[in-house]
Computed example of a mutant assay.
Amino acid sequence: MAQADRTERTTGPSWDTSAGPSSAHRPAGFLGLRHWGRDARGSGPWRRGLLIALLALLTAVLLAFHAELPNSTGNLGSLLETFLPWLGLAVPVLLVPALLRRSATALLALLLPTVLWANLFGGLLTDKSGGKGDWTVVSHNVAAANTDVPDTIRGLIASDAQIVALQELAGRQLHAYESGLAGAYPYHTVEGTVGLWSKYPIGEVSPVDLKMGWTRAFRAQVTTPQGPVAVYVAHLPSVRLKAEGGFTVNQRDVSAQALGDAIQGEPLKKVLLLGDLNGTMNDRSLAPVTSQMRSAQGAAGDGFGFSWPAAFPMARIDQIMSKGGLEPVDSRTLPRDGSDHLAVAAAYRYN
């Protein structure tokens, strides 16, 4: 027994090393990559998660070729482009099962929509503000069913804007806006359900025919410190998402063409467009307007600037656009009020 004890102390305990180092001493590696071998069914990391990879590639295709998705069936192209930034949520949603499945193929495929989304929208995540501007404009769909008109009026005055455009002015509420804004804005004009309030003189007001049968847009000449500016105020027709008809935008598209034609024929060099266009800058159907004007949010905003619905904004359908040397230096949304839209504001600098 003593001889055996001496032998054990000399040679140390016996270990079976045929299976390599004990798992207790193996490094786990990043994300547990030592477990990324074959699973119980014999599939390796490059063969697992093929469905996840396919969904990632489909997301990439929609991001890269959204303009090719036809509008012939339910206006699917315009519907996708209205909410296009939200397609990026597919990346984190697919990332979770890709990691759980330990799929190298899915992770590699997810790089493609990530890069494409960053290329399309990454610039909106940076602050492009150029500092305080010299004059500010606001556009707001105040909603015919506004639940707190006095609060909306207070918010508009607090914005300290020099020019304010309002849409969806209901007859019973119009007097409240006219009386409530009169002290801050000595000049104003209303055509149909849209109006313009200004600290600068307004002249040469004329309706713009949106092919709707009633007035929801007009053009006014405003004399600013930069000289005369043609200000267009517009509220394009609403769109609907219906089970039987898809994304119904036909009347909106007809009106967008009419508005684009009016702006294209504008004799003044400096032009502002303020209004609820019921569409985003990505929507191809608004190209008659967006192709010739610059979005304040895209040029000087910080973030996406979603304006609708106010309770949980998902799209920027309220726009401030310009052309002819009007360069925005800031763009933002205003705090929520009694409307189902958020007001949008942009600041410009004298040049």
Rank of each mutant, 00 (worst) to 15 (best):
R332C: 09
E204N: 14
A299S: 15
S103L: 12
Y348Q: 09
P45N: 02
P207D: 08
S179K: 15
A347D: 15
V208S: 11
G324R: 05
A158N: 08
P186K: 07
S291C: 00
L50M: 12
Q3H: 09
R6K: 13
V194N: 09
D209P: 00
G20T: 03
I320L: 07
G49F: 07
A234N: 04
A104I: 12
V164G: 06
G133L: 09
V344C: 05
D276H: 01
P150W: 03
G338Q: 02
V96Q: 01
A182Y: 10
S307F: 04
V149Y: 03
L95T: 08
G37Y: 02
R336W: 05
R216Q: 12
V249H: 13
G133Y: 05
G12V: 05
M314Y: 05
W135H: 10
E204Y: 00
T280I: 01
W135C: 03
V329I: 08
L273W: 02
S255E: 12
Y232A: 01
P21H: 12
L54V: 14
G123T: 09
L241V: 14
H175P: 11
K270Q: 15
G325C: 07
F218P: 00
L210R: 03
F30A: 14
E81C: 04
F306T: 03
D276P: 01
G227M: 00
V231W: 04
R38M: 05
P27R: 04
L259S: 11
E178G: 05
D148E: 04
